[in-house]
């Protein structure tokens, strides 16, 4: 049972990770003069969109890892509306946090907001897909010893990794190397993406190694 779940999760993670690579490669063919640094916002939104599409397809439409309670259309619609509302709110939340960390208030607001959207995609969107738009469930998952399934643990790891990645990504900015990736917010988005990717890779292995210690309470 363990191996089965971990394998399923690993394959989903592989799909998400490959979608990020695709999101980097495909625009390079389609869009003229595309480069990760030069047309950074295009890259950010293509990554965000592809991750979002894969996540929604995997978790919501295919129902991976989610125990659906009701399946009526009205319930689905209200869930979708609430989810998109939560997602927007989380974008603004991240935007405010980033500004509190010292991002310029008005100047390059679009860039800052893009970072917030990317972070929300890596964290909030996955929460919405796996846990649904319920704050209580989120609080449960993110409090100590709150994970109840493999998916909860994976969510914890990927979320923490993306946030820490973005956090670490801010460090090179003050260095006077004058590299193209030191421009705000490129290093942070890159950091978040690498953090997310490493979270995707780490999660199955970590769970595999710690499967003895992990004892999930039944729901």
């Amino acid at each position: 049972m363990w191996d089965h779940e971990i394998k399923g999760m690993a394959s989903v993670h592989a799909a998400i990770a490959s979608s990020i690579f695709m999101a980097t490669l495909v625009p390079a063919v389609i869009v003229e003069k595309f480069s990760v640094y030069g047309t950074h916002l295009v890259w950010v939104y293509s990554v965000a969109a592809s991750v979002a599409v894969v996540n929604i397809a995997m978790f919501w439409l295919l129902g991976v890892g989610l125990v659906a309670k009701r399946n009526t259309l009205s319930y689905k619609v209200s869930r979708a509306i609430r989810s998109s509302l939560y997602f927007t709110l989380s974008c603004f939340f991240y935007h405010i946090i980033v500004i509190l960390y010292g991002a310029p208030l008005l100047e390059s607001a679009l860039e800052t907001f893009s970072l917030a959207v990317l972070l929300s995609t890596f964290t909030t969107l996955r929460c919405l897909c796996l846990l649904g738009p319920s704050v209580q469930a989120w609080i449960r998952v993110f409090s100590r010893d709150g994970a109840m399934s493999v998916w909860d643990t994976s969510l914890q790891i990927t979320t923490a990794c993306s946030v820490i990645g973005a956090w670490l990504g801010a460090f090179p900015i003050p260095l006077d190397w004058d590299r193209p990736w030191q421009v705000w917010p490129i290093s942070c988005t890159m950091g978040a993406t690498f953090g997310f990717l490493s979270g995707l890779v780490i999660a199955p292995f970590w769970i595999h190694w710690h499967r003895k210690q992990l004892t999930y309470k039944s729901k």
Partner: peptide, 19 residues
């Protein structure tokens, strides 16, 4: 150890304080 981080030490402290 990095001269830029000394010049911009305030950034380090603001960042840590926020966290």
């Amino acid at each position: 150890a990095a001269s830029s981080f000394i010049e911009e030490e305030h950034q380090t402290w603001y960042f840590l304080l926020n966290t």
